[in-house]
């Protein structure tokens, strides 16, 4: 029994709520929102109903997130501590494995000495960036898997905890180099922001991937 009227609530908002709402609350919260959305669409316009849905979705996510933190503070502390330790190990692993791999590669396959040095620096930095984003994503997925079905609160808490050292590195450097940053192009600005903050987003993305995968598996199991 899954019939709805011709109009459906915004998919992105529904996906966001599904990510953050717990498994127990999901059917009732989403059901209530869909019911009121249909009422609003019937009484007024679909555009109005969609605006109403978004206005409900964002505070709902924040409230549910806060209640998840309050419901299991020790689990969150454990998960964040474990995640920070994993992050440190991951960082050491990145340094060790990247430079080992790069040196062998450079020695036998691609002699960087012959290439323009700025291009080489860019390629090395990009390689480190992509590699560290992949490791952050993996850490996010691991933390999400260990979080006892609280993927998003756990990875968000970890990301917030990790944002403190990131900000302490970023802010002084940003202050010093503000003029250079302001006059550099969009691409370089994006690259710098990604370099500092990409890992934090990758941690949360790891949580979103695990939760989305779990939701898909649950839906497939219930439709069988």
């Amino acid at each position: 029994m899954t019939t709805l009227g011709s109009s459906r609530p915004p998919r992105l908002a529904t996906w966001l709520i599904e990510l953050f709402v717990s498994d127990e609350q999901s059917p009732s919260v989403l059901g209530d929102l869909v019911e009121e959305y249909s009422e609003a669409a019937a009484k007024s316009t679909i555009a109005h109903a969609r605006r109403w849905y978004w206005r409900q979705a964002l505070p709902t996510v924040l409230h549910l997130l806060r209640s998840e933190f309050q419901a299991s503070p020790w689990l969150m502390v454990g998960v964040v501590t474990g995640g920070v330790v994993l992050g440190k190990l991951g960082h050491l692993f990145i340094n060790w494995s990247f430079w080992n791999g790069f040196n062998s590669f450079n020695q036998y396959v691609f002699p960087f000495d012959t290439v323009n040095s700025r291009l080489a620096t860019f390629l090395i930095n990009s390689g480190i960036l992509v590699y560290s984003l992949a490791v952050s994503l993996l850490i996010g997925c691991t933390v999400a898997l260990l979080s006892k079905r609280r993927e998003m609160p756990a990875t968000l808490a970890l990301s917030l905890a990790c944002s403190i050292p990131v900000l302490t590195r970023f802010l002084p450097s940003f202050q010093r180099n503000y003029e250079t940053f302001r006059h550099s192009g969009f691409l370089l600005q994006t690259w710098v922001l990604l370099y500092f903050f990409g890992g934090l987003f990758a941690l949360v993305a790891g949580g979103a991937i695990v939760k989305s995968h779990r939701l898909r598996s649950r839906r497939a199991a219930s439709s069988r």
Partner: peptide
């Protein structure tokens, strides 16, 4: 009970 106007979801 699950209802169609709620996309097949139950009321709590």
């Amino acid at each position: 009970e699950p209802t169609p106007e709620r996309g097949g979801r139950s009321k709590r």
